[in-house]
Design a protein around this nucleic acid. Structure first.
Lengths: 238, 238
DNA sequence: CTTGACATCGAACAGCAGTTCGCATATACT
DNA sequence: AGTATATGCGAACTGCTGTTCGATGTCAAG
């Protein structure tokens, strides 16, 4: 009776229901909270809120989502729409593969002073013109949580031997620890700057090693060295 | 100089603000969407919605969360309350415009045993399922026609001084000519292979220069050297 | 004591949001 | 044709939600 292949199940939905499901997923990923009935209606060209409500209940009956009655934005997505994904019902994992492309914020330049403090972004669908956003394929992250990823533009040639040049975009994952030799962005409170270096814990001090034979390492006290993220990748357009 | 330790920063918050932050996190985890101002107030024993609003704005100024103005449940948490995290403010991921993403085929490995065959003039709508597809932002191409772009995975370290390592993905534009010194993929009929080198026209011969001091250039007759594409960029995930 | 910054409270307002209901349309089946 | 089912529309209702404003209390600095 029931085919358990998510792809097949997904195809049994009406175009409208697919559009609703897709929109909800994109909306949650973009805004961090679920849309209202009317927001869904506008996005999917549905004139009446009752029709959105009707289709949401259909999707609920089909197990695609949950609703909290009489609460605004009370929608939770329950399972992926395409095959090859875990049919988990856990909260928090439901955003994967909304699109195969993720946007990560480029929050400043490294080795330039502190990363730029960004103004509040209450603009809804509009991008803050001062903030670069770079798009990469989700596959490139190889499972790393998108929300932990950000990007920096490299300034200087201190990591030239690690094949990271001035102007390159480095993609980082937020983390507070690392192993010796890994490339990390570190915040140095004493200097008021963030820098990209190879990290070595020498017990009483931290050695931050440039990957450039002409440059000397920086030594800092562990209390004055806060790891901000580890380098996941590099991008360069010549 | 201010202390940037988030644990310390967290301790500077008032008890009320800590309670609010904790409640929001628990609420989102439990219900899948953020709470309203009044829900926060009830949970944290705050009599007036304006007080909740006031403290939420304080938390926003401190970089703990983001708010979408005039939208119900428009709260996004930005960073955990404990353990060292970068004190940088994130940008919320915005509604994705899939049209800004282009798919380019990764058609093989360069400097590999098997010769690389380029697809026809248009890669078309279909992609061979065995061919990897790389998705990048259209912006990265800076105006170059998408249909002329493809990608190759680099094998070998012959371009190490050009900051291109084994395993990197190079993005190329199809073209048959180039200027001296540019990095190009060239098809060498005599050798039956495609290689990535710096191109120099020396009149009677073509010099294909590795960017690796330990490797000698390749000299070929102009008739046995067919330029396939010019390097536009490099991507690497470590 | 006065001042000002900070935090809180209560109340009100305008618009938002989920729900419900009557009615219309389309399709499949009898 | 007639009926049942599924889907869609518009309107209205009621409660919810973010915002704003004036007033009050606290406390440290001048």
């Amino acid at each position: 009776m029931y085919d358990d292949d998510p792809d097949v199940l997904y195809e049994t939905l009406s175009d409208r229901q697919k559009a609703i499901l897709d929109f909800i997923e994109r909306f949650i990923e973009a805004d961090g909270f679920p849309p209202t009935i009317r927001e869904i209606g506008e996005a999917c060209d549905i004139a009446s809120t009752s029709v959105v409500n009707y289709n949401l209940n259909k999707l609920r009956e089909g197990g695609w989502l949950e609703r909290t009655a009489e609460k605004s934005r009370g929608i939770r997505l329950l399972r992926p729409r395409h095959a090859g994904q875990p049919a988990t019902r856990e909260v928090g994992l439901r955003l994967s593969n909304a699109l195969n492309v993720v946007r990560i914020p480029k929050i400043g330049r490294i080795v330039a002073s502190a990363p730029v403090m960004l103004p509040g972004s209450d603009f809804g669908e509009y991008y803050d013109p001062e903030v670069d956003v770079i798009e990469i394929s989700r596959d490139m992250l190889r499972g790393v949580d998108v929300n932990e990823v950000y990007a920096l533009e490299v300034q200087g040639e201190s990591m030239i031997d690690a094949l990271i040049d001035d102007g390159d975009i480095v993609i980082l994952r937020k983390q507070q620890t690392c192993r010796d030799g890994e490339l990390v962005a570190v915040w140095l409170p004493e200097r008021g700057e963030t820098t990209l270096k190879a990290f070595y814990d020498e017990g009483t001090r931290i050695r931050l090693q440039p990957r450039n034979p002409g440059m000397a390492p920086i030594y800092v006290h562990p209390n004055n060295c806060q790891i901000q993220g580890k380098v996941l990748g590099v991008m360069r357009m010549v």
